[in-house]
Design a protein around this nucleic acid. Structure first.
Lengths: 174, 174
DNA sequence: GGTTTTATAATACAACTGTATTATAAAATT
DNA sequence: AATTTTATAATACAGTTGTATTATAAAACC
Protein backbone atom coordinates (compact mmCIF):
# COMPACT_ATOMS: atom_id res chain seq x y z
CA UNK A 1 0.00 0.00 0.00
CA UNK A 2 2.91 2.27 0.65
CA UNK A 3 3.89 2.06 -2.99
CA UNK A 4 0.44 3.05 -4.24
CA UNK A 5 1.27 6.73 -4.47
CA UNK A 6 -0.40 8.74 -7.19
CA UNK A 7 3.02 9.37 -8.69
CA UNK A 8 3.89 5.68 -8.86
CA UNK A 9 0.54 4.82 -10.37
CA UNK A 10 0.86 7.58 -12.96
CA UNK A 11 4.35 6.41 -13.86
CA UNK A 12 3.30 2.79 -14.23
CA UNK A 13 0.37 3.89 -16.38
CA UNK A 14 2.68 6.06 -18.50
CA UNK A 15 0.81 9.22 -17.58
CA UNK A 16 1.75 12.49 -16.02
CA UNK A 17 0.35 13.51 -12.68
CA UNK A 18 -2.05 15.91 -14.35
CA UNK A 19 -3.26 13.32 -16.85
CA UNK A 20 -4.01 10.79 -14.15
CA UNK A 21 -5.72 13.46 -12.13
CA UNK A 22 -7.97 14.09 -15.08
CA UNK A 23 -9.54 10.67 -14.57
CA UNK A 24 -9.21 10.35 -10.80
CA UNK A 25 -9.25 13.63 -8.96
CA UNK A 26 -8.27 12.13 -5.62
CA UNK A 27 -6.29 9.12 -4.51
CA UNK A 28 -9.32 7.68 -2.77
CA UNK A 29 -11.20 7.49 -6.08
CA UNK A 30 -8.32 5.49 -7.49
CA UNK A 31 -8.31 3.07 -4.58
CA UNK A 32 -12.05 2.54 -4.67
CA UNK A 33 -11.90 1.96 -8.41
CA UNK A 34 -9.19 -0.67 -8.02
CA UNK A 35 -11.15 -2.32 -5.23
CA UNK A 36 -14.33 -2.54 -7.27
CA UNK A 37 -12.36 -3.87 -10.22
CA UNK A 38 -10.98 -6.77 -8.23
CA UNK A 39 -14.35 -7.47 -6.66
CA UNK A 40 -16.17 -7.52 -9.99
CA UNK A 41 -13.59 -9.78 -11.61
CA UNK A 42 -13.94 -12.30 -8.80
CA UNK A 43 -17.72 -12.16 -9.06
CA UNK A 44 -17.61 -12.79 -12.78
CA UNK A 45 -15.31 -15.77 -12.34
CA UNK A 46 -17.81 -17.27 -9.94
CA UNK A 47 -20.71 -16.72 -12.33
CA UNK A 48 -18.71 -18.41 -15.07
CA UNK A 49 -18.28 -21.46 -12.84
CA UNK A 50 -22.00 -21.55 -12.15
CA UNK A 51 -22.68 -21.43 -15.89
CA UNK A 52 -20.64 -24.59 -16.37
CA UNK A 53 -23.40 -26.52 -14.60
CA UNK A 54 -21.12 -29.05 -12.96
CA UNK A 55 -22.30 -31.66 -10.47
CA UNK A 56 -22.99 -30.03 -7.10
CA UNK A 57 -19.79 -31.00 -5.34
CA UNK A 58 -17.57 -30.08 -8.27
CA UNK A 59 -19.42 -26.81 -8.64
CA UNK A 60 -18.99 -25.97 -4.97
CA UNK A 61 -15.32 -26.86 -5.11
CA UNK A 62 -14.68 -24.83 -8.22
CA UNK A 63 -16.57 -21.83 -6.90
CA UNK A 64 -14.50 -21.87 -3.75
CA UNK A 65 -11.28 -22.27 -5.71
CA UNK A 66 -12.07 -19.04 -7.52
CA UNK A 67 -11.69 -17.31 -4.17
CA UNK A 68 -8.12 -18.55 -3.79
CA UNK A 69 -4.95 -17.28 -5.49
CA UNK A 70 -4.17 -20.06 -7.94
CA UNK A 71 -2.97 -18.09 -10.97
CA UNK A 72 -0.71 -15.12 -11.44
CA UNK A 73 -3.75 -12.98 -12.09
CA UNK A 74 -5.75 -14.02 -9.04
CA UNK A 75 -2.63 -13.80 -6.92
CA UNK A 76 -2.23 -10.16 -7.92
CA UNK A 77 -5.90 -9.49 -7.33
CA UNK A 78 -5.90 -10.99 -3.88
CA UNK A 79 -2.72 -9.24 -2.91
CA UNK A 80 -4.50 -6.00 -3.75
CA UNK A 81 -7.54 -7.09 -1.78
CA UNK A 82 -5.50 -8.12 1.19
CA UNK A 83 -3.69 -4.80 1.21
CA UNK A 84 -7.01 -3.01 1.13
CA UNK A 85 -8.34 -4.97 4.08
CA UNK A 86 -5.30 -4.10 6.14
CA UNK A 87 -5.32 -0.52 4.94
CA UNK A 88 -8.99 0.14 5.53
CA UNK A 89 -8.84 -0.94 9.17
CA UNK A 90 -7.78 2.49 10.37
CA UNK A 91 -8.08 4.71 7.35
CA UNK A 92 -10.21 6.24 4.65
CA UNK A 93 -13.97 6.31 5.11
CA UNK A 94 -14.81 5.29 1.55
CA UNK A 95 -12.75 2.10 1.44
CA UNK A 96 -14.69 -0.89 2.76
CA UNK A 97 -13.16 -4.06 1.33
CA UNK A 98 -14.48 -6.38 4.02
CA UNK A 99 -18.05 -5.69 3.06
CA UNK A 100 -17.45 -8.05 0.19
CA UNK A 101 -20.56 -10.16 0.52
CA UNK A 102 -18.43 -13.27 0.77
CA UNK A 103 -19.79 -14.38 4.11
CA UNK A 104 -23.34 -13.96 2.87
CA UNK A 105 -22.51 -15.81 -0.34
CA UNK A 106 -20.93 -18.76 1.40
CA UNK A 107 -23.75 -18.88 3.94
CA UNK A 108 -26.28 -18.98 1.13
CA UNK A 109 -24.31 -21.72 -0.63
CA UNK A 110 -24.19 -23.88 2.48
CA UNK A 111 -27.90 -23.48 3.16
CA UNK A 112 -28.72 -24.17 -0.45
CA UNK A 113 -26.59 -27.32 -0.55
CA UNK A 114 -28.25 -28.49 2.61
CA UNK A 115 -31.74 -27.81 1.33
CA UNK A 116 -30.89 -29.96 -1.68
CA UNK A 117 -29.83 -32.75 0.64
CA UNK A 118 -26.12 -32.77 -0.11
CA UNK A 119 -24.86 -32.08 3.39
CA UNK A 120 -24.69 -34.39 6.37
CA UNK A 121 -27.62 -34.46 8.72
CA UNK A 122 -27.42 -32.67 12.04
CA UNK A 123 -24.78 -30.11 11.21
CA UNK A 124 -25.07 -26.52 12.36
CA UNK A 125 -25.42 -24.72 9.03
CA UNK A 126 -24.39 -21.26 10.17
CA UNK A 127 -21.42 -22.61 12.05
CA UNK A 128 -20.40 -24.61 8.99
CA UNK A 129 -20.66 -21.52 6.83
CA UNK A 130 -18.48 -19.64 9.29
CA UNK A 131 -15.95 -22.46 9.31
CA UNK A 132 -15.85 -22.72 5.53
CA UNK A 133 -15.55 -18.95 5.17
CA UNK A 134 -12.62 -18.86 7.58
CA UNK A 135 -10.98 -21.82 5.86
CA UNK A 136 -11.17 -20.10 2.49
CA UNK A 137 -9.81 -16.77 3.64
CA UNK A 138 -7.14 -18.47 5.71
CA UNK A 139 -6.05 -20.55 2.73
CA UNK A 140 -6.09 -17.46 0.54
CA UNK A 141 -3.81 -15.65 2.96
CA UNK A 142 -1.46 -18.60 3.34
CA UNK A 143 -1.34 -19.21 -0.38
CA UNK A 144 -0.27 -15.62 -0.84
CA UNK A 145 2.48 -15.95 1.73
CA UNK A 146 3.62 -19.44 0.68
CA UNK A 147 2.59 -20.00 -2.94
CA UNK A 148 5.01 -22.89 -3.34
CA UNK A 149 3.57 -24.91 -0.50
CA UNK A 150 -0.02 -24.07 -1.42
CA UNK A 151 -0.20 -24.46 -5.16
CA UNK A 152 -3.44 -25.07 -7.03
CA UNK A 153 -3.28 -28.84 -6.59
CA UNK A 154 -2.73 -28.61 -2.88
CA UNK A 155 -5.45 -26.02 -2.40
CA UNK A 156 -7.90 -28.16 -4.33
CA UNK A 157 -6.96 -31.11 -2.14
CA UNK A 158 -7.54 -29.23 1.11
CA UNK A 159 -10.84 -27.68 0.09
CA UNK A 160 -11.91 -31.01 -1.39
CA UNK A 161 -11.15 -32.72 1.91
CA UNK A 162 -13.24 -30.18 3.69
CA UNK A 163 -16.20 -30.62 1.38
CA UNK A 164 -15.94 -34.39 1.78
CA UNK A 165 -16.08 -33.98 5.53
CA UNK A 166 -19.43 -32.20 5.43
CA UNK A 167 -20.89 -34.01 2.44
CA UNK A 168 -23.67 -36.57 2.58
CA UNK A 169 -22.22 -39.28 0.36
CA UNK A 170 -25.29 -41.52 0.42
CA UNK A 171 -28.13 -39.46 -1.05
CA UNK A 172 -31.30 -39.18 0.96
CA UNK A 173 -33.50 -40.16 -1.96
CA UNK A 174 -32.78 -42.15 -5.10
CA UNK B 1 0.67 0.95 9.60
CA UNK B 2 0.38 4.41 8.23
CA UNK B 3 -0.07 5.78 11.71
CA UNK B 4 3.07 4.06 13.03
CA UNK B 5 5.30 7.05 12.38
CA UNK B 6 8.19 7.64 14.71
CA UNK B 7 6.58 10.92 15.73
CA UNK B 8 3.27 9.30 16.63
CA UNK B 9 5.00 6.57 18.59
CA UNK B 10 7.12 9.08 20.47
CA UNK B 11 4.08 11.17 21.30
CA UNK B 12 2.10 8.18 22.53
CA UNK B 13 5.05 7.14 24.66
CA UNK B 14 5.40 10.67 26.02
CA UNK B 15 8.89 11.05 24.60
CA UNK B 16 10.55 13.47 22.29
CA UNK B 17 11.86 12.36 18.94
CA UNK B 18 15.41 12.43 20.25
CA UNK B 19 14.55 10.43 23.35
CA UNK B 20 12.85 7.69 21.36
CA UNK B 21 15.74 7.65 18.95
CA UNK B 22 18.02 7.00 21.88
CA UNK B 23 16.44 3.56 22.27
CA UNK B 24 15.57 2.82 18.66
CA UNK B 25 17.84 4.44 16.14
CA UNK B 26 15.71 3.52 13.14
CA UNK B 27 12.03 2.88 12.57
CA UNK B 28 12.75 -0.65 11.48
CA UNK B 29 14.21 -1.46 14.90
CA UNK B 30 10.99 -0.25 16.45
CA UNK B 31 8.86 -2.39 14.17
CA UNK B 32 10.92 -5.50 14.74
CA UNK B 33 10.80 -4.95 18.48
CA UNK B 34 7.01 -4.64 18.42
CA UNK B 35 6.76 -7.75 16.26
CA UNK B 36 8.89 -9.83 18.60
CA UNK B 37 6.92 -8.53 21.56
CA UNK B 38 3.63 -9.74 20.14
CA UNK B 39 5.14 -13.05 19.12
CA UNK B 40 6.64 -13.71 22.54
CA UNK B 41 3.45 -12.84 24.36
CA UNK B 42 1.48 -15.28 22.23
CA UNK B 43 4.08 -17.97 22.83
CA UNK B 44 3.92 -17.47 26.57
CA UNK B 45 0.14 -17.68 26.56
CA UNK B 46 0.40 -21.03 24.81
CA UNK B 47 2.94 -22.34 27.30
CA UNK B 48 0.65 -21.30 30.12
CA UNK B 49 -2.15 -23.37 28.59
CA UNK B 50 0.14 -26.38 28.32
CA UNK B 51 1.05 -26.00 31.99
CA UNK B 52 -2.61 -26.31 32.94
CA UNK B 53 -2.42 -29.97 31.92
CA UNK B 54 -5.98 -30.21 30.64
CA UNK B 55 -7.41 -33.28 28.91
CA UNK B 56 -6.08 -33.50 25.33
CA UNK B 57 -9.07 -32.10 23.51
CA UNK B 58 -9.53 -29.21 25.93
CA UNK B 59 -5.83 -28.49 25.78
CA UNK B 60 -5.85 -28.43 21.99
CA UNK B 61 -8.92 -26.21 21.96
CA UNK B 62 -7.49 -23.77 24.47
CA UNK B 63 -4.14 -23.62 22.72
CA UNK B 64 -5.85 -22.77 19.46
CA UNK B 65 -8.06 -20.17 21.12
CA UNK B 66 -4.94 -18.34 22.27
CA UNK B 67 -4.23 -17.70 18.61
CA UNK B 68 -7.52 -15.89 18.15
CA UNK B 69 -8.47 -12.37 19.21
CA UNK B 70 -10.82 -12.97 22.11
CA UNK B 71 -9.81 -10.19 24.51
CA UNK B 72 -9.02 -6.54 24.10
CA UNK B 73 -5.35 -7.34 24.55
CA UNK B 74 -5.14 -10.15 22.02
CA UNK B 75 -7.23 -8.14 19.60
CA UNK B 76 -4.67 -5.34 19.74
CA UNK B 77 -1.83 -7.81 19.38
CA UNK B 78 -3.30 -9.48 16.35
CA UNK B 79 -4.17 -6.23 14.72
CA UNK B 80 -0.49 -5.35 14.99
CA UNK B 81 0.47 -8.74 13.61
CA UNK B 82 -1.95 -8.50 10.75
CA UNK B 83 -0.65 -5.06 9.84
CA UNK B 84 2.88 -6.42 9.85
CA UNK B 85 1.98 -9.27 7.54
CA UNK B 86 0.41 -6.88 5.04
CA UNK B 87 3.24 -4.41 5.44
CA UNK B 88 6.07 -6.87 5.07
CA UNK B 89 4.78 -8.21 1.76
CA UNK B 90 6.51 -5.53 -0.26
CA UNK B 91 8.68 -3.73 2.23
CA UNK B 92 11.51 -3.79 4.69
CA UNK B 93 13.95 -6.67 4.59
CA UNK B 94 14.15 -7.16 8.34
CA UNK B 95 10.41 -7.58 8.97
CA UNK B 96 9.32 -11.20 8.55
CA UNK B 97 6.10 -11.72 10.48
CA UNK B 98 4.96 -14.76 8.53
CA UNK B 99 7.92 -16.78 9.68
CA UNK B 100 6.02 -17.18 12.90
CA UNK B 101 6.46 -20.90 13.39
CA UNK B 102 2.71 -21.31 13.61
CA UNK B 103 2.44 -23.75 10.75
CA UNK B 104 5.19 -25.89 12.22
CA UNK B 105 3.60 -25.71 15.63
CA UNK B 106 0.17 -26.75 14.43
CA UNK B 107 1.67 -29.49 12.29
CA UNK B 108 3.52 -30.85 15.31
CA UNK B 109 0.38 -30.70 17.39
CA UNK B 110 -1.64 -32.63 14.83
CA UNK B 111 1.02 -35.31 14.46
CA UNK B 112 1.40 -35.57 18.20
CA UNK B 113 -2.34 -35.92 18.76
CA UNK B 114 -2.45 -38.60 16.11
CA UNK B 115 0.47 -40.51 17.57
CA UNK B 116 -1.39 -40.55 20.88
CA UNK B 117 -4.41 -42.01 19.10
CA UNK B 118 -6.78 -39.09 19.47
CA UNK B 119 -7.44 -38.46 15.79
CA UNK B 120 -9.59 -40.42 13.39
CA UNK B 121 -7.95 -43.16 11.40
CA UNK B 122 -7.08 -42.61 7.79
CA UNK B 123 -6.80 -38.85 7.78
CA UNK B 124 -4.03 -37.06 5.90
CA UNK B 125 -2.12 -35.50 8.77
CA UNK B 126 -0.31 -32.82 6.81
CA UNK B 127 -3.46 -31.84 4.98
CA UNK B 128 -5.32 -31.67 8.28
CA UNK B 129 -2.61 -29.45 9.73
CA UNK B 130 -2.88 -27.19 6.72
CA UNK B 131 -6.64 -27.05 7.06
CA UNK B 132 -6.53 -26.30 10.78
CA UNK B 133 -3.86 -23.66 10.26
CA UNK B 134 -5.96 -21.93 7.62
CA UNK B 135 -9.07 -22.17 9.76
CA UNK B 136 -7.33 -20.51 12.70
CA UNK B 137 -5.83 -17.66 10.70
CA UNK B 138 -9.07 -17.17 8.79
CA UNK B 139 -11.03 -17.01 12.03
CA UNK B 140 -8.47 -14.62 13.49
CA UNK B 141 -8.85 -12.32 10.53
CA UNK B 142 -12.64 -12.49 10.54
CA UNK B 143 -12.80 -11.97 14.29
CA UNK B 144 -10.75 -8.81 13.85
CA UNK B 145 -13.07 -7.53 11.15
CA UNK B 146 -16.32 -8.63 12.81
CA UNK B 147 -15.70 -8.97 16.56
CA UNK B 148 -19.41 -8.85 17.34
CA UNK B 149 -20.26 -11.81 15.16
CA UNK B 150 -17.20 -13.79 16.22
CA UNK B 151 -16.99 -13.36 19.98
CA UNK B 152 -15.14 -15.76 22.22
CA UNK B 153 -18.11 -18.09 22.62
CA UNK B 154 -18.69 -18.33 18.90
CA UNK B 155 -15.00 -18.87 18.15
CA UNK B 156 -14.81 -21.61 20.73
CA UNK B 157 -17.86 -23.23 19.16
CA UNK B 158 -16.40 -23.18 15.66
CA UNK B 159 -12.98 -24.47 16.63
CA UNK B 160 -14.63 -27.06 18.90
CA UNK B 161 -16.75 -28.27 16.00
CA UNK B 162 -13.63 -28.63 13.91
CA UNK B 163 -11.81 -30.62 16.55
CA UNK B 164 -14.84 -32.87 16.96
CA UNK B 165 -14.81 -33.54 13.25
CA UNK B 166 -11.27 -34.92 13.29
CA UNK B 167 -11.38 -36.48 16.75
CA UNK B 168 -11.49 -40.18 17.42
CA UNK B 169 -14.26 -40.32 20.00
CA UNK B 170 -13.96 -44.04 20.74
CA UNK B 171 -10.43 -44.62 22.01
CA UNK B 172 -8.38 -47.27 20.27
CA UNK B 173 -7.46 -48.94 23.53
CA UNK B 174 -9.27 -48.99 26.86
C1' DG C 1 35.17 15.50 42.49
C1' DG C 2 35.91 15.02 37.90
C1' DT C 3 34.62 12.43 33.87
C1' DT C 4 32.30 9.50 31.09
C1' DT C 5 28.01 7.44 29.85
C1' DT C 6 23.00 7.66 29.49
C1' DA C 7 18.86 10.17 28.69
C1' DT C 8 16.20 13.85 26.81
C1' DA C 9 15.05 17.66 23.90
C1' DA C 10 14.90 21.04 20.06
C1' DT C 11 15.88 21.94 15.62
C1' DA C 12 17.30 20.95 10.84
C1' DC C 13 17.13 18.64 6.42
C1' DA C 14 16.21 16.34 2.37
C1' DA C 15 12.85 13.43 0.36
C1' DC C 16 8.21 12.30 -0.61
C1' DT C 17 3.26 12.93 -0.26
C1' DG C 18 -1.59 14.43 -2.07
C1' DT C 19 -3.56 18.07 -4.19
C1' DA C 20 -3.93 22.58 -6.76
C1' DT C 21 -2.83 25.65 -10.42
C1' DT C 22 -1.72 26.96 -14.90
C1' DA C 23 -0.76 26.23 -19.65
C1' DT C 24 -1.49 23.76 -24.00
C1' DA C 25 -2.77 20.70 -27.30
C1' DA C 26 -6.33 17.68 -29.38
C1' DA C 27 -11.00 16.38 -30.12
C1' DA C 28 -15.81 17.05 -30.25
C1' DT C 29 -19.61 19.89 -30.82
C1' DT C 30 -22.32 23.59 -32.56
C1' DA D 1 -15.13 27.94 -38.71
C1' DA D 2 -15.66 28.96 -33.98
C1' DT D 3 -16.08 27.31 -29.58
C1' DT D 4 -16.43 24.31 -26.05
C1' DT D 5 -14.98 20.08 -23.92
C1' DT D 6 -11.53 16.61 -23.10
C1' DA D 7 -6.84 15.22 -22.42
C1' DT D 8 -2.14 15.95 -21.11
C1' DA D 9 1.73 18.11 -18.97
C1' DA D 10 4.71 20.95 -15.96
C1' DT D 11 5.18 23.23 -11.98
C1' DA D 12 3.93 24.75 -7.31
C1' DC D 13 2.65 24.21 -2.48
C1' DA D 14 2.00 22.90 2.03
C1' DG D 15 2.34 19.06 4.98
C1' DT D 16 4.54 14.78 6.66
C1' DT D 17 8.13 11.55 6.78
C1' DG D 18 12.63 9.22 8.57
C1' DT D 19 16.85 10.48 10.06
C1' DA D 20 20.78 13.57 11.55
C1' DT D 21 22.75 17.09 14.32
C1' DT D 22 23.51 19.70 18.28
C1' DA D 23 22.80 20.99 23.00
C1' DT D 24 21.99 19.96 27.68
C1' DA D 25 20.69 17.73 31.78
C1' DA D 26 21.03 13.57 34.82
C1' DA D 27 23.24 9.45 36.30
C1' DA D 28 26.98 6.31 36.86
C1' DC D 29 31.57 5.48 37.50
C1' DC D 30 36.40 5.85 38.80
Amino acid sequence: MEGATVRNIAKEAGLSLGALRHYFSTQEELLIYAMDLVKNQAEQRIYRVIDRKLPPKEMALNMLLELLPTTEETRAEMEVWFSFVAYARHKRAGVHPYEDGLFDGITRMVHSLNKAGYLRDGIDLDAEAERLYALIDGLALHALLAPDRLNQTRLSEIVGNHLDSIWQETPQKD
